[in-house]
Computed example of a mutant assay.
Amino acid sequence: MLVDVRSSTHVIELGPDVVVKRYRSRRNDEPHREWRALTLLHEHAPGIAPVPISANLDVEPPTVVMSRLNGAPLECGPSSDLATAVASAVMRVQEAIPSHTLADLPARAGHPLELLKQVRTWCAAARRPAADPTVAEALRAAEIWLRRPALDVVLEQPTRPVFGTGDGNLANLLWDGSEVRLVDFEYSGRSDRPYELAELTEHISVRTAHGPGMEHVLKHFDLDSAEADKMESCRRLLAAFWLLRIMGSDRGDPQTRAKTLTSQAARLLTLLDRRTS
């Protein structure tokens, strides 16, 4: 079976026991990041991710072959029971790599300050839609928040490093009825827990799915005050990123996109304490 999503950075061929992943992009060193992640996780946390089988990274397109995992992608944020399995899997991946090895890894693609620069640029160029007052209000609130001089300091504040998957998409969490496993490590690298949890919580796949979101999962993580403060800022930043990304897209049904945009604007306003949940 060939899976080809036009907006994706890769094409996937699904076999009975293996997955062949061919990459369309090297912009963030995606093939090497994925192969490195699979190799390290197989060594330090076997079973949590696909087994690396082979890689041909210096051809076009670069290719990685890995085992095919059982299970189906999550379709919504987990209930309290399933949240335990999700949190356990995420913790295991984050904490799997020894500190001396983790220190030598490149930072994950799209680190907080990089994302902040991108969101500020997008926000400054965004048109305020007169037909949607919720979106217009969210953009004004985001613009004010993004100008806060302390924001850069908060986002670059170092906290305990972890291994980050670099992608909070629900589809990357596979549930087989007893365990959750993770796939898709194209943007992986050294990160920290506040940013990774923020991405897991605010990813647009979670926001557009029916269900309780990721709040049950967050309850399993014991963050100190510095981590909690940074996660709050990261969640706001990611919510602004998704709002602006939806605004800049012309894919899909226009009515569905408009509803998603309004919903994301309301979410951002809630995180910015401008609106109650």
Results as ranks from 00 to 15, higher is better:
residue 244 L to N: 06
residue 273 D to Q: 07
residue 42 H to C: 02
residue 136 A to T: 10
residue 2 L to I: 15
residue 67 S to T: 14
residue 117 K to N: 09
residue 125 A to R: 14
residue 248 G to P: 03
residue 8 S to D: 15
residue 50 P to W: 01
residue 37 A to P: 10
residue 166 G to T: 13
residue 159 T to F: 09
residue 55 A to Y: 10
residue 59 V to F: 02
residue 85 A to D: 08
residue 107 A to I: 04
residue 7 S to E: 15
residue 269 L to F: 02
residue 111 H to G: 01
residue 196 E to H: 07
residue 157 Q to A: 12
residue 142 A to P: 05
residue 224 D to H: 14
residue 184 D to P: 00
residue 146 L to Q: 12
residue 24 R to D: 07
residue 107 A to K: 10
residue 79 S to A: 14
residue 238 L to V: 07
residue 66 M to C: 10
residue 269 L to W: 00
residue 231 M to Y: 03
residue 105 L to K: 10
residue 22 R to S: 08
residue 234 C to T: 02
residue 22 R to Q: 11
residue 39 T to R: 14
residue 201 T to D: 13
residue 275 R to L: 13
residue 227 E to N: 04
residue 246 I to H: 03
residue 67 S to V: 11
residue 26 R to S: 14
residue 195 Y to Q: 02
residue 183 V to H: 06
residue 174 L to P: 06
residue 203 H to C: 04
residue 71 G to W: 09
residue 50 P to L: 02
residue 82 L to M: 12
residue 120 R to M: 03
residue 199 E to C: 01
residue 79 S to W: 04
residue 150 A to N: 00
residue 11 V to G: 00
residue 222 D to I: 05
residue 276 T to E: 08
residue 128 R to H: 09
residue 136 A to I: 04
residue 180 V to C: 11
residue 25 S to T: 11
residue 140 R to D: 15
residue 240 A to S: 12
residue 137 E to K: 13
residue 174 L to F: 07
residue 257 R to S: 09
residue 154 V to K: 02
residue 211 G to W: 05
residue 119 V to G: 02
residue 31 P to L: 05
residue 180 V to G: 07
residue 241 F to V: 01
residue 166 G to H: 06
residue 38 L to T: 06
residue 43 E to W: 05
residue 100 H to T: 06
residue 102 L to V: 09
residue 175 W to G: 07
residue 208 T to P: 00
residue 177 G to A: 10
residue 41 L to E: 10
residue 170 L to A: 08
residue 198 A to Q: 05
residue 216 H to F: 08
residue 125 A to D: 15
residue 2 L to E: 13
residue 4 D to Y: 13
residue 172 N to G: 12
residue 7 S to T: 15
residue 104 D to C: 04
residue 24 R to Y: 02
residue 271 L to T: 06
residue 63 T to N: 08
residue 185 F to N: 02
residue 265 A to S: 00
residue 142 A to Y: 07
residue 210 H to W: 06
residue 141 A to F: 13
residue 227 E to Y: 07
residue 156 E to R: 04
residue 268 L to E: 08
residue 75 E to P: 00
residue 152 D to Q: 04
residue 158 P to H: 14
residue 163 F to P: 08
residue 154 V to G: 01
residue 73 P to F: 07
residue 261 L to K: 12
residue 79 S to M: 01
residue 163 F to G: 10
residue 151 L to C: 02
residue 132 D to K: 07
residue 75 E to T: 15
residue 157 Q to E: 15
residue 236 R to N: 06
residue 201 T to A: 08
residue 266 A to H: 09
residue 96 A to C: 03
residue 191 S to Q: 03
residue 68 R to M: 06
residue 241 F to N: 02
residue 234 C to Y: 04
residue 231 M to H: 05
residue 143 E to W: 03
residue 67 S to K: 08
residue 88 S to A: 15
